[in-house]
Simulated scan of single mutants.
Amino acid sequence: MTGVPLKHQRISRILAREIRDGRRPAGERLPGEHTLAERFGVSRTTIRAALAELTEQGLITTRTGKGSYVLFDGGPPDDGLGWARTLAVRGLDTTVRTLAVHEIRDAALAAELGLEKDVFVCVERSRELLADATVVSYERSFLPPVPGIRELPVQGLDQGSLTELLLRAGLRPDHGEQRIRGRPVDAREAELLRRTPGDWFLQARRTSRAADGSFVEHVDSLLDPTHFELALPFG
């Protein structure tokens, strides 16, 4: 059928989206071929073809005997969806710090997302430069309290990928939207970001949904405009 992507193309698009939206930061090692084959229900040959596409796009590199690693460090998006995204500064090593994991009620957000229940598991994280511990982003991930997620406030979040955690809980992002605007940070945000209240940051709000339209994740991020920029494809 014309216009229907091949299996490896579909997989490479999913992985590329995870890299471009920051879920797989530069330097992260991708899961092995066997793990990816199990995740997508395909052969390792198909996975190799998908990884080859990501290599051609400059998103990953493969090191013999060690696996595939993310190279993407903020190149402009090229996914044809037209959604806004953030752009990380090139060549800067960063680390992610988990600040809090708790259950909250947010009726306004539930209404905005069209959800009947207003209970979420909220994961708060920041990203810092390894060189000088400058905080360049702060994000809150709002997750549905399904099995595998609702236990997080008690069990805590390990250092693994949040994407992998979602997948283990049966939450598979397929599509969504992202909006970005600039605004001054308030006193609490400034304290978390180690800045001054009123400093301007980019606010990115991204909502991901599964193939059937069900809610997967909502992420509200504050991004230092010195280290991130907005890129919009056109034409």
Rank of each mutant, 00 (worst) to 15 (best):
1 M>C: 08
1 M>L: 09
2 T>Y: 06
3 G>V: 14
7 K>I: 08
7 K>C: 05
7 K>T: 14
8 H>T: 02
9 Q>P: 00
14 I>T: 10
15 L>S: 14
17 R>C: 03
19 I>V: 15
19 I>K: 14
20 R>E: 15
20 R>L: 12
21 D>L: 10
22 G>D: 07
24 R>F: 14
25 P>Y: 06
25 P>A: 07
27 G>R: 12
31 P>W: 09
31 P>N: 08
33 E>D: 14
36 L>E: 08
36 L>W: 06
38 E>M: 12
38 E>C: 11
38 E>F: 06
41 G>Q: 11
42 V>Y: 13
45 T>V: 13
45 T>N: 09
45 T>P: 02
49 A>D: 10
49 A>M: 14
49 A>G: 05
51 L>F: 09
51 L>T: 07
51 L>D: 12
53 E>V: 04
54 L>I: 03
54 L>Y: 05
54 L>T: 08
56 E>G: 03
56 E>D: 13
57 Q>G: 02
60 I>K: 05
61 T>R: 15
64 T>R: 15
68 S>G: 03
68 S>W: 05
68 S>K: 10
69 Y>R: 07
69 Y>W: 13
70 V>Y: 06
78 D>L: 11
81 L>F: 07
87 L>W: 11
91 G>C: 08
91 G>Q: 00
94 T>R: 15
95 T>H: 09
98 T>Y: 08
101 V>Q: 04
106 D>G: 08
106 D>P: 10
112 E>R: 14
116 E>R: 14
118 D>E: 13
121 V>P: 01
124 E>W: 03
127 R>Q: 15
127 R>F: 02
128 E>N: 07
132 D>M: 06
135 V>R: 12
135 V>F: 00
136 V>Q: 02
136 V>M: 04
136 V>F: 06
139 E>F: 01
144 P>Y: 04
145 P>I: 05
146 V>T: 12
146 V>S: 12
147 P>E: 11
151 E>Q: 07
155 Q>H: 05
155 Q>C: 02
158 D>Y: 07
159 Q>I: 01
164 E>G: 09
165 L>Y: 02
169 A>W: 10
172 R>V: 09
176 G>Y: 09
179 R>C: 01
179 R>P: 02
179 R>V: 08
182 G>P: 00
182 G>F: 08
184 P>Q: 01
191 E>W: 01
192 L>P: 01
192 L>V: 14
194 R>S: 13
196 T>A: 01
207 T>N: 00
209 R>N: 06
212 D>G: 10
213 G>T: 02
214 S>R: 14
215 F>D: 04
216 V>G: 02
216 V>K: 10
218 H>Y: 12
218 H>Q: 06
219 V>E: 05
222 L>M: 03
225 P>R: 08
225 P>F: 03
226 T>P: 02
226 T>F: 04
227 H>F: 15
228 F>K: 07
228 F>R: 13
234 F>Y: 06
